[in-house]
Amino acid sequence: MLLSKEEVLHVANLARLSVEPSELEEMAGTLSRVLEYIDLLNELDTESVSPTSQVVEQHTVWRSDVIQDSLSAELATQNGPQVVSAMFVVPKILDGGGQ
């Protein structure tokens, strides 16, 4: 298998997804099969090929530094699952987290 159960757990953690222990084996299997298929790309020597990350040829697309209307705090937070004093509430943060 190209992706071990441990690796699936690691990736799930990075992606903030939880994979049930009972599903782990199957998930590792499914993803491994896809990765095996993807292995096909290794037939190609791409040493001297430059990568394409965008297909649009334009560059330096920018806007003037002009203020546009913001949303009202009410509209900005109208979809919030939990909102207090126009701020989004999140549960207790355990470790430092962040950047």
């Binding site: 903030r16 997804l17 919030g80 699952p81 939990q82 999140v90 207790k92 355990l94």
Partner: peptide, 17 residues
Amino acid sequence: VRYGFRETAPDLIQMYS
């Protein structure tokens, strides 16, 4: 956090996952 579905959880990391 800002919109859509949220499952309750005791802490942030568990809320996310």
